[in-house]
């Protein structure tokens, strides 16, 4: 009844925080490898496409991206507050809109593949 809707975004924040803690170090390491020019075999077009075409691959990528953007969005709302921005409703709308756009784009591109 009186439980604030923050319960929902906090749930996404907590789940996303756990997931990013586990997954992002490896993800950043892969971008690091790409940046050095040593693109790993699994990231060559044919292999990564095979992965992204499969429903399991799509599901994994979507869950990671969805929870990550909502995690980051909620934390950015707190960051804004901590840096003295007091227009919380405006900030909340902005960051959650970004998260929603990210979620929709991720879903859209994943469905476009394959």
């Amino acid at each position: 009844m009186a439980i604030a809707k923050k319960a929902v975004v906090w749930g996404l924040f907590a789940a996303g925080g756990t997931l990013t803690s586990f997954v992002f170090p490896a993800l950043i390491a892969l971008f690091l490898l790409i940046a050095t020019g040593n693109v790993p075999e699994g990231l060559q077009f044919d292999q990564i496409r095979t992965f992204a075409v499969s429903w399991l691959g799509k599901a994994c990528l979507f869950i990671v991206l969805f929870l990550s953007v909502w995690h980051a969005a909620h934390r950015l709302r707190v960051v804004a507050h901590d840096f003295g921005i007091r227009k919380d409703a405006l900030v909340a709308n902005a960051v959650y809109t970004i998260a929603a756009i990210g979620s929709v784009l991720a879903a859209f591109y994943l469905l476009m593949i394959g």
Partner: peptide
């Protein structure tokens, strides 16, 4: 610690951008 949220946003959208290339 809280500022890591910028990194999470950055890498999420970088990955989404990569997915757009993969289409």
């Amino acid at each position: 610690r809280e500022l890591t949220s910028f990194l999470v946003m950055f890498y999420s959208f970088l990955t989404i951008y990569g997915l757009s290339a993969l289409t």
